[in-house]
Design a protein around this nucleic acid. Structure first.
Lengths: 171, 171
DNA sequence: CACCTAAGTTTCCTCGAGCAACCCAGGAGG
DNA sequence: CCTCCTGGGTTGCTCGAGGAAACTTAGGTG
């Protein structure tokens, strides 16, 4: 970098967007429809027409998104056959897709707390096995629950490309 | 539901998109840049030019998003003054914005597990107080940890508008 | 007094999302 | 056999969001 003009006046750790797991994940499922599609698929809405109908999304957009989600390995096409019909495909979450559920729950939790009307949240998730309500929590390995507004630091990991002058950076 | 033409062959609960906390939250922070802006603001990148530079986002888009995020109450403008400069504004998370951090962590966790290169994750979050690594967990009120691929059901909440054959079908 | 900088705002252009209308494969059914 | 129907898409058009860069504003500095 040019030593004369320090274009980056702040000395925080600076992770490249491309080297950020949030940015990478958003590239795959960060568009307007992907998470809603995944919500529906997770919720048992698995067929093309059902999804198009329920989401109100244009069919070509849905088609593209499903193809992309399939390519990324978060959903997969499964053949089914209704009696008296030919074989068709439906969409299901893969294991990797199932691991996106915490993201959906985090969104749902925030919306429930900040955007629900006076009647309360529109739905709440429960543990499939025991039926008890479920929530997202942030915990550290020392066993602390960090609550709803966790205070964190970000440490550079092995895959980081830090570009800062001082190791230690901002506090 | 019309008995002759069951247009909706699946009998899962069907929540209106508009009555879904995920959809509502996505309307506020679900665009391509909002979460990355929030990530940076949470990480100490608070000034307009820093954000524009770091994110590589067009300045007009950044301006609009920051205005929207401010209006939604997840960030707030705070005056600051560098010596020898006039007073300027920077952006910080509000309490509601702070509560979005679990969403960011959920994204980060998934990206770390599924999109990190061979070197490993680019960064990892630690508890600001004790320094121990932090993770998102899904737990139910009965005390079970549901793990990375939680199995859930969705129960209609007080604010739901269920549209099934049951009472109060959708309008 | 000319120039610098942070923080936007305006202008113009491009590109992709959204929509609607069309296509296609294969049973049903007459 | 020929036609219809239905799920699952693909094709062409439009308009608004995103991007690049120039312009603006307001105070500080040599």
């Amino acid at each position: 970098m040019d030593p004369v003009t320090p274009k980056r006046p702040y000395d925080a750790y600076e992770y490249e967007s491309s080297a950020c797991s949030i940015a990478r994940t958003l590239e795959q499922i960060g568009d307007r429809w992907a998470l809603l599609i995944l919500r529906d698929v997770a919720n048992g809405v698995r067929r093309f027409d059902q999804l198009a109908d329920h989401l109100g999304v244009a069919r070509n957009v849905l088609s593209r998104r499903l193809a992309a989600l399939t390519e990324f390995g978060v959903v997969t096409r499964v053949a089914y056959r209704d009696e008296g019909s030919r074989e068709r495909q439906e969409y299901r979450l893969t294991d990797a897709g199932h691991e996106l559920i915490p993201i959906l729950l985090a969104f749902m939790g925030w919306g429930d707390r900040h955007l629900a009307g006076p009647e309360g949240p529109p739905a709440y998730p429960v543990h499939a096995r025991c039926g008890a309500p479920v929530r997202v929590s942030i915990t550290c390995e020392a066993g602390h629950d960090l609550g709803d507004r966790p205070h964190l630091h970000l440490e550079p990991g092995p895959g980081s490309r830090v570009r800062a002058g001082a190791p230690g950076g901002r506090a």
